[in-house]
Simulated assay, not measured.
Amino acid sequence: MQQGERSESGAPIYRYEEREVPFEVASGYEQTIDRVSAHVEQHIGAVASVYHEIISDLVHLDVHIVAPTAERNFYTLVTSGMSDLPMKAPEGYEDLAYSELMICLPADWKLGEDDLKDEGNYWPIRLLKQLARFPHEYQTWLWAMHTVPNGDPAEAYAPNTEFNGVMLMPPILASEAFYEMELSSEKVVHFHALIPMYSDEMEQKLKMGAESLFDGFDKVGVSELLDVSRPSVVKRKKGLFGFFRR
């Protein structure tokens, strides 16, 4: 991991090369799986199914699926296993070393076994698993407002989307009680939502900071509920008028 570079907004930029941590087979901690499942059911809804990893590297990652309901007419996907190991949090932030991730998908998203062979359906799950393993692969830390591009140069996650990066944010479509799960006095797990982003949004965040996107997010209704057809919130000028790029 290369450090020292900073964006125009003053935020640090980290560039990751080949991982130095060797492949290590991991098995899931039953306590983590059971507690995450109970936490999700208490604050989100009944867990309809769980995608289990067959062979796991460093941490065993499962994805808990809450099916659409009348109150929450969309799927909710939550990881368990990222918090089996602490992330390498900065000095002074050691109490924020444990996290899990979540994202929501439209009610008509195809999640059947055969459907997930299509990357256009599977990529949000792949993104959850990649980011959940990322801090353990590269001995780093992920937290709210951190952004991660899909490669360097960044590429679209799948043929059916132009999203090529992601930002972590507090969940918008869940109560604040969902944000944290206390496993012990020394281990509190924090839940972060994934917000897929376009290139121009990633660039603006680096230049002007995450806060520069918030008004646009509010206007367009950006949340952890994925909308692959939403417009970019970066306003481009054309003559005297502005427009939102699709």
Rank of each mutant, 00 (worst) to 15 (best):
M1G: 04
Q3H: 15
S9L: 04
G10P: 01
I13D: 06
R15H: 11
E18Q: 13
V25Q: 14
V25H: 13
A26N: 06
V36K: 07
Q42E: 13
H43A: 09
I44Y: 05
S49N: 15
V50R: 07
Y51T: 01
H52S: 09
I54P: 05
S56G: 10
H60S: 09
H60C: 11
L61V: 11
D62C: 14
V63F: 13
I65F: 08
V66F: 03
A70L: 15
E71R: 14
N73D: 15
Y75Q: 05
K88Y: 09
K88S: 10
P90M: 02
Y93R: 14
S99N: 11
L101P: 00
P106C: 08
D108M: 09
D108I: 07
D108T: 06
W109E: 04
E113P: 10
D114G: 07
L116Y: 09
L127C: 08
L127A: 01
R133W: 04
R133D: 01
R133A: 06
Y138R: 01
Y138A: 03
Y138E: 02
T140V: 08
W141F: 12
L142M: 06
M145G: 00
P149E: 07
N150G: 04
D152P: 02
P153R: 06
A154S: 15
A154N: 03
A154G: 03
Y157D: 00
T161W: 08
G165I: 02
G165Y: 00
V166L: 04
M167A: 15
I172Q: 11
I172E: 05
S175V: 12
S185Y: 11
L194K: 07
L194E: 01
Y198F: 14
E201I: 10
K205P: 00
K205S: 08
L206Q: 11
L213W: 01
F214H: 09
F214Q: 12
D215E: 10
F217Q: 04
V220Y: 13
L226C: 02
D227G: 05
G239W: 09
G239R: 07
G242L: 08
F243V: 04
R245H: 10
